[in-house]
Amino acid sequence: MHPNNRNKDPYQFKYLRKANPKLSPYILDTDRGIQTVDFTNSDAVLELNRAIMLSDYSLNAYELPSGYLCPAVPGRADYLLYLKDFINKEQAHGLDIGTGANFIYPLLAASLFKWKMKGVDTDKNAIKNASLLIENNTHLKGFLTAAHQSTPAHIFEGILLPGEKYDFTMCNPPFYSSEKEAFKATKDKSKGLKLKEVTRNFKGQSNELWCNGGEALFVKRMIKESVKFKSQVGWFTTLISKNENLPKLKKQLEKLNSVYQTVDMSQGNKKSRFLAWKFKE
């Protein structure tokens, strides 16, 4: 993890339990004397990440609607920490595409760096919950806004308004190309963990998990649309979960006369990266 990640060391369950008493029933003691939680249990995952947000990121409240994605906080914080190193700015204004009901990136960015953030999503219920999270965390209220993207075919259009300028945009694009692909991946993971039922421990709504063409096509659309807003954004960025998608995306960026860079990240055995680009004058 990034050296400044607050969760790079083992979880301090003493403090997490104090911040969120609902976590207590899910804490397990291992044979090695180390405490953990059952990461196959979606309720345990929710309460752990809620505890992290309350304890390590000073939130007053962190509520999610049932069935919506509960992201792992440490990995999300890593994207922001590496992004801060990349743009090399203390004060920044960012746009989070597909912010979700969890509103995780704006909350973390405001808590970590006091960055101003706008989170956008096509899901009205997600934006409703994001707005509640802003209301319930009054100490961050002046830094955060949430906006509904009313046209799912657009990414920046209708959201990046005339006169607005952002130091960066960020995105965690839908990973799968269809519900069938998402279900198969969850089934395979459940089988590997020897679970009796097919279960998605981080949950998630359809628009949070898949879209037509999957990650590659979504990012291609994002790159194509970003050209129109090149004068309003310092760096466009997005997570890329599949390394094999990078060559075709880089080829598209080269055709559009852009400057681009890939920033590698890792969390344990998991390798990830984000792609950043801007356009030449």
Rank of each mutant, 00 (worst) to 15 (best):
H2F: 12
H2K: 10
R6N: 05
N7A: 15
N7V: 05
Y11C: 01
Y15A: 12
L16I: 06
L16Y: 13
R17L: 07
Y26T: 01
Y26L: 00
I27F: 15
T30N: 09
D38C: 04
T40G: 11
N41D: 15
D43T: 05
V45A: 09
L46I: 00
R50C: 06
R50I: 00
M53T: 10
P65F: 12
G67W: 15
C70S: 11
A72C: 05
P74Q: 01
P74H: 07
L80G: 06
L80Y: 11
L95M: 09
D96W: 08
I97N: 14
G100N: 12
I104Q: 04
A110S: 13
A126F: 14
A130I: 04
L132H: 15
L132R: 14
F143G: 00
T145H: 10
H148I: 10
Q149S: 13
E157V: 02
I159E: 13
L160I: 13
Y166V: 02
N172R: 02
F183W: 13
K184I: 05
K191D: 05
L195Q: 08
F202M: 13
V219A: 10
M222D: 04
E225R: 08
S226I: 00
F229K: 03
S231M: 02
G234P: 09
T237F: 10
T238L: 11
N243G: 01
K255N: 10
G268P: 05
S272K: 07
S272L: 09
K280G: 13
K280P: 02
E281A: 13
